[in-house]
Design a protein around this nucleic acid. Structure first.
Length: 272
DNA sequence: CATATGTCCTGAGAGC
DNA sequence: TGCTCTCAGGACATAT
């Protein structure tokens, strides 16, 4: 998502518009009028990322943080439809004409923040290191004291950023670790496998431009293809592609679906 | 402190 | 057809 928006770097923001819609507006901070005054006339110096958020660094050191959450998209063109378009940054001076914030459910957030606010809300006090960069010892150090299930801890953005519900299940299946196992009980071999599969799953998913699920919303410039590589996610009742014996089970952890193979991901002992 | 739960919002699909 | 219910790449305030 960040890469698709990267060509907007160097462009000037001419205006910030909320398309009229029967739907609830997304949360903006500050409110639209003030947001527009603060962003208009500024040049986008870079398009970055903090975990799952897209970050536009402006020439006055302020930043725009776009947080799509579950069903939001940040795009330069071609949103899935017009009715769920929530916010438009109109641009000039470069190849991109606009940045679009599209969000089916409207849970997304757009923030214009000062450098101090950025550090407060998105700095290391609030958010952990990126999942693609965290070293093994750091991952282990941060999680291993916890009594929480490993799957729930992996999704805690204060510990590390970038792992959501879908990928947490996929990572643990490939790492052969039961999702309900408390972090405290995991052994060095488990952490090694979790660390390896964490990177592997996310990097493969990025190569295939993410997972377009049954709701059809997630896309970058076209639909993602990683859903065809899912081994457990939304495969409850189907045979495990890894062992060919177990059938995939769905459980609920912290109000979210978890999928795993009871055969490959047994809680006892260490397997390879 | 660490951990658990309810809530925001819209739409799709299942079951009756 | 229409109703109700459940569920969804998330994060945060508030409760325990």
């Amino acid at each position: 998502m960040r890469r698709a928006v990267a060509p907007a770097a160097g462009s000037r923001i001419d205006d910030v518009i909320r398309p009229r819609s029967r739907l609830q507006p997304i949360l903006m901070s500050p409110p639209l009028a003030q947001f527009r005054r603060g962003a208009s006339g500024r040049t986008i110096q870079s398009v970055g990322r903090v975990g799952k958020r897209v970050v536009l660094a402006l020439d006055n050191a302020a930043r725009i943080v776009l947080e799509p959450r579950m069903t939001g998209l940040v795009l330069l063109a071609d949103p899935p439809n017009a009715s769920h378009l929530r916010l438009v940054l109109e641009l000039s001076g470069g190849s991109a004409r606009q940045i679009l914030f599209w969000d089916q459910r409207g849970l997304g957030v757009a923030r214009l923040v000062t450098p101090e606010q950025f550090d407060t809300f998105y700095g290391p006090q609030r958010l952990g290191p990126d999942a693609l960069e965290i070293p093994l010892h750091d991952l282990r150090q941060r999680l291993r004291g916890s009594r929480r299930p490993i799957k729930v801890a992996l999704m805690d953005q204060a510990l590390l950023v970038g792992v959501g519900n879908l990928y947490a299940s996929e990572i643990l299946h490939r790492a052969l670790v039961h999702p309900a196992r408390p972090c405290q009980q995991l052994r060095p071999e488990h952490w090694r496998r979790i660390h390896r599969e964490l990177r592997a799953v996310l990097e493969e998913a990025i190569v295939h431009e993410g997972s377009t699920l049954s709701d059809g919303t997630y896309r970058v410039e076209r639909e993602g293809r990683y859903q065809t590589y899912h081994r457990v996610y939304q495969r409850a009742g189907q045979v495990c592609l890894q062992c060919g014996r177990g059938s995939i089970v769905r459980i609920v952890q912290a109000q979210r679906s978890t999928f795993f193979c009871p055969c490959c991901q047994r809680s006892n002992g260490i397997r390879d």
